[in-house]
Nucleic acid binder design. Structure first.
Lengths: 342, 342
DNA sequence: ATGAAAGCGCTAACAG
DNA sequence: CTGTTAGCGCTTTCAT
């Protein structure tokens, strides 16, 4: 490395003609220091561009002010918006954010977390954890030593905190609203490897059973639900599925899939919502920009992130774990209408 | 904090009945260790769930394996996709990523960077730096002590590395293609506070001057270009501007603005591209999902991120700074067509 | 092949 | 009010 070496507290002490303890005191302002020495020290700090080494400080104090975040993907705006919320909240509490992307891969998810733990994070937030990892002992072990909060994770891990939207309730609301509009053949589109999909499918099944119309053919798993290809994959699947099962409505587990559904309909010359209704989930910004605008369940991502941040901090400071379930709301726009015969 | 205390190297040494040096050696595998002791140590590590403390290691070695990233906003998918590229590349080199969001605020941008420096990052990547900060001494000072790379930053800072798309070239290509289609009243839509906009406006001006049709009324600054409100703000501005200046085409500095333009046209009953053409910039995923699909300049965000990562690493390891300019390509979709009288 | 010890940059008693 | 010192968890000579 080229470049000037960073000044240390010792350099500053020498420059100012005081001890390192005094420098530390003026930096932290936690003990009285005579005004004139403070001035001298400040001058030295200024002159040498001294920046305290947080790593050293935290090592000494046996604490940490960084929190680790693991996302399955950055592709879905859902995650970006959640991260935004986390970042904003965490900043207020003077923590920094170490971000890792698991790329929808359970092993990489574990690797990310190990790396984060090695970096001595004060706590960990995992967004939409991989189902498989939740079933193994992995997270159980982890929760014993590191404050851990899941966003939209549903397996019970002792000691972990949770924040989620009421996805089950949201799904039921979505389904109910569709049903009331006369839709009796509702195709559910889901993805793989996340608990959220399981939760939603379960609600779908019980709702449909209640109505006495559960049809296994009306559940479609399009695979990875948060990748660059999700929209196009969904459209591809639906190109075959739609003519085959002729649903009156398509109820999707996220907005990416819903946009894929929109595109498939366009290709099949089905007009949305006249010929078929499309329901989204999440209410990412994208849902307002497509045509027709998506009717979708809002997940309030920013708040999801904020809440998660406050829960890690609470766990870090007081050892308390908690569960927060945020309500969600149906955003009615233009992709859902009354069912028609066709 | 509740929870078990993390084991340290000392605990492991005791458990295995060896010295800390030996434990260090088996952890790092950098010195010969007798097989049986290695086994004993490994067992102790396993038993105590020992994870080496990276902070302590790095303090000792006076190095760092974390790199800091500053984005102005997470709202525009442009940034998410760039971060994705950085994350993937950085991971390969065993670095971790400390993410900070400046929320489009120059002061917060500085605060982010200071926090990152205090955390002893090995290097820094700043995406779309704030124009104002680039003009002050701030980055100049910084570059003297910390490896620094800008993504789409244009002020010359000695010692910094740069990666950008050829935004000037891209703008010219976009304009040329519009011009060839007969558009002679091209409204340019830009944002504030980023060098990118300046670069593009400059190209716009000289291009229009060359054609002898430069009209100050045809340059519109919609303010913040990467916020939640960008799309709607743009639409609002355009609702007034479009009837007033009656352009044949709208050339936008990013896709968010272009989507806003699309929405404004819809509201004004202008059909795109029949009545007016809309040109985007970036080619974020969004641009494929709106209707009509955006014709736009691809910026290849992932590669932008990857390249930036490789440049920081190069600067960290060898002290070399470099400039990379990636080419970009016009993606012709459905929002641009020949100019019509109207 | 292994241990003892110094020291990375910092804070926090403790002693003046 | 200020200086001295121990030690955070780790790596790395230097001995053995």
């Amino acid at each position: 490395m080229i470049g000037k070496k960073n000044a240390t507290i010792v350099d500053v002490a020498k420059e100012a003609g005081v001890s390192v303890a005094t420098v530390s005191r003026v930096v932290n302002g936690n003990y009285p220091v005579k005004p004139e020495t403070k001035v001298a020290v400040s001058a030295a700090i200024e002159k040498l561009h001294y920046v305290p080494n947080v790593q050293a400080r935290e090592l000494n104090q046996r604490r940490s002010t960084t929190i680790g975040v693991v996302v399955p993907s950055l592709y879905n705006m859902f995650f970006a918006e959640v991260i935004d919320g986390i970042e904003a909240a965490v900043r207020k509490d003077k923590y920094s954010l170490l971000l890792n992307c698991a790329q929808n891969d359970p092993e990489q998810e574990q690797a990310c977390i190990k790396a984060l733990v090695a970096r001595n994070v004060a706590g960990l937030i995992v967004i939409s954890p991989n189902t498989q990892n939740m079933q193994e002992d992995f997270y159980k072990q982890l929760a014993e030593r590191t404050p851990l909060v899941f966003i939209n994770g549903y397996h019970e891990i002792p000691g972990a905190s949770y924040v989620s939207n009421d996805e089950a309730g949201g799904m039921r609301t979505a389904l109910t609203s569709l049903w009331k509009l006369g839709h009796n053949r509702i195709l559910m589109v889901r993805g793989s490897h996340s608990d959220s999909y399981e939760v939603k499918e379960k609600v779908y099944r019980s709702f449909m059973e209640e109505q006495g119309v559960l049809d296994e053919n009306l559940i479609l798993d399009i695979g990875e639900g948060n990748s660059v290809e999700t929209v196009d994959n969904t459209a591809d699947y639906l190109l075959a599925k739609l003519p085959e099962v002729r649903p009156t409505a398509v109820c999707c587990c996220n907005d990416l899939m819903a946009v894929g559904a929109l595109n498939a309909c366009k290709l099949l010359d089905l007009e949305v919502p006249r010929d078929v209704s499309v329901m989204g989930f999440d209410n990412v910004s994208l849902s307002r920009y497509v045509a027709p605008k998506l009717t979708t369940m809002d997940q309030n991502m920013f708040q999801l992130g904020e809440s998660a941040a406050s829960l890690v901090v609470e766990k870090i400071r007081f050892g308390r774990n908690k569960k927060i379930v945020l309500g969600n709301m149906l955003i009615e726009r233009d992709s859902v209408a009354e069912a028609h015969e066709r």
